[in-house]
Design a protein around this nucleic acid. Structure first.
Lengths: 242, 242
DNA sequence: CGCCGGTTTGACATACTTCAAGAGAAGTGG
DNA sequence: CCACTTCTCTTGAAGTATGTCAAACCGGCG
C-alpha cells in the first residue's frame, strides 16, 4: 500500500500552524510526535475506500487528495479537495462514506485512531481545532452546493480557479502574472464542479482567449487578470462589493 | 421580530434525546434549563440574516427552517433544511454565511451565545454532541453535492422525497400508504435541489402518474411505492444492494 | 518511434430552462 | 359571504446551455 517516509519534527513541520495540531503547546506536541507516522501515496493511489474501517486519521503534509462519491452507473462527484494541513478522518466515526484518493503524490502524517481519539477527549486544544476544521469544511461544502446547484459552466470554472488561488500558498507573494499549479486533470476538475471534461476544456479555452488566464502546460495556469476572473465567478457585484 | 412562547421543561422536551443536549446529565440539563428561552417565528419570517452578528444559538424545537445562499442576481440555493432537534449557530463563530428562514411556523430553544460557549468549553457532553451534529451536517452536505452535481431532475426529486421520509418522525409507524407533510413550496424544493419550480412540478406529476406517489393537497404527499421511489433516486442498484 | 492517456475542438442531441397561459387555493376587505 | 387580488401550481411550446459522440492533436514514456 503506502510507503513510509522520513519523519519531520513537529516544530519544523510545514503545516504546524494550520493543521489539527495548530493550537497544541509543546507538551501536547511531544505526545503527537510520539504517536505519528508518515505515509506516502503515489498519484492515483487510493488512500481510503468508502466503507472501509478507519484505522488511522491523518493530516495532509504535502500533495493533494480528493474525496469523491460515485453512483453505481459511474457518475462521480468530488465532494472535497484536501490540501496540506487538511484533516482526514472524523472523531467518533469508524467509517467514511466516500473514497479518498491521492491526486498528486501525497504524504500524510498519520495517527492510529484509538490513541488519537483518546487524546482528543483529553486535550481541548485538539478537539477545538478539530471542530474548527469540521466547520471550515462545512462552509466549503455549502459554498460548493451553491456552485453545483446554481452556477453556469463559466462561473463554475472561474470559481474553481479562484478557489485554487485563494487556497494555494503561492499567492502570499502575489506577483503577477500569478502562476498556479493545477493538481487535477480536466476530468477531475469536471467531477469537482459537476460538468463534463469537454465543457471544462471549452470554458478554460474561452477564458484563455479572453486573456483572463493563460496556459500551455496542462498542469499549470497563469492568472492574467484576477479582477476579470473574480467577476466571472458570479459571486460579487461588478464593482467588487460583497 | 419573534414572539416568545411558554417554555417546556427539558425533561419533557420532544427533542431531548436528539438535540445538542442529548448527552447531558441532570445537572447539565438544569444549567441549560436556566439559560434557555423560547422564541417563535411565523412561516416566512427571517430568523437570521447572512453576516448578522450571532447573538444566540438555538435548537429547532418544532417546525422547519431553511438555510440558503443567494447570488446577487437572485439565483438562490438552499444549503440546509433544519428539522426539529437541528442546531443553529456554530461554536466559536460570530457570523453565518447564509440566511436562516422559517419555512413553517417555527419554535426555537435559544441560548445566549456567550454563556453557551462557556458551557461548551466546560462540558464535554455538549461539545461532543456539537461535533456529532456538525459531522452529520457535513455528511448531509456531501450527499447533497452528489445530488446537485450529478443527478437528473427525476433522481433529484425522488431523492428529496426519500430524504423527507427518512428524516420525518412519522415513518416510525411505517403504515402504507405513508403520508408525508411537505413543508416547502415547489419553488423552495426547486431551490433545494437545483432546479426550476416548473421542472419540480413536472417530475412530481410524472411520479404521480406512475403511481409512485400521490397528492391533491399541495402540502402533503403520499408514498404509494417506496421501492420504486428508492430506485428512482439512482442511489442503489435495482435489487436494493448498497 | 509508436503507443496512450489527456486534451481540444466540432457537430449534433437533449434535458432542463424560459416564457406563457390558465386553473386552483388562500388571503383580504367590503 | 362573496368579489378581488395574489400566490402557487400545472401544463404546453419553444429556446439554450450543456452533454454526447467523434476526430484529431499533443506530450510523455516505454
Amino acid at each position: 500500500m503506502a510507503s513510509s517516509t522520513l519523519k519531520v519534527k513537529c516544530s519544523e513541520c510545514p503545516i504546524r500552524h494550520r493543521a489539527v495540531c495548530a493550537r497544541c503547546d509543546d507538551d501536547e506536541l511531544d505526545m503527537l510526535e510520539g504517536m505519528k507516522t508518515y505515509r506516502s501515496f503515489r498519484a492515483g493511489e487510493a488512500i481510503l475506500w468508502r466503507g472501509e474501517n478507519l484505522l488511522f486519521v491523518a493530516s495532509v503534509v504535502s500533495g493533494v487528495a480528493t474525496l469523491s462519491k460515485t453512483l453505481e452507473d459511474g457518475r462521480t462527484q468530488m465532494v472535497g479537495l484536501l490540501l496540506p494541513s487538511d484533516f482526514i478522518g472524523r472523531p467518533g466515526r469508524k467509517e467514511i462514506d466516500f473514497d479518498v484518493t491521492a491526486a498528486t503524490d501525497v504524504t500524510l502524517c498519520c495517527f492510529q485512531r484509538a490513541p488519537f481519539e483518546k487524546m482528543v477527549d483529553e486535550t481541548p486544544h485538539v478537539s477545538q481545532r478539530l471542530m474548527e476544521l469540521a466547520l471550515d469544511e462545512l462552509d466549503a461544502a455549502r459554498d460548493w452546493m451553491l456552485l453545483l446547484g446554481r452556477k453556469t459552466a463559466r462561473e463554475k470554472v472561474a470559481t474553481f480557479i479562484e478557489m485554487l488561488v485563494r487556497r494555494s500558498d503561492t499567492n502570499v507573494t502575489f506577483s503577477f502574472p500569478l502562476t498556479l499549479s493545477l493538481p487535477l486533470t480536466r476530468n477531475q476538475v469536471a467531477n469537482y464542479i459537476g460538468l463534463t471534461f469537454e465543457t471544462v476544456s471549452r470554458q478554460l479555452s474561452a477564458l484563455k482567449q479572453e486573456q483572463v488566464i493563460d496556459f500551455n502546460d496542462r498542469r499549470h495556469l497563469e492568472i492574467l487578470d484576477l479582477a476579470a476572473l473574480t467577476i466571472a465567478t458570479g459571486d460579487k457585484d461588478a464593482d467588487g462589493f460583497m
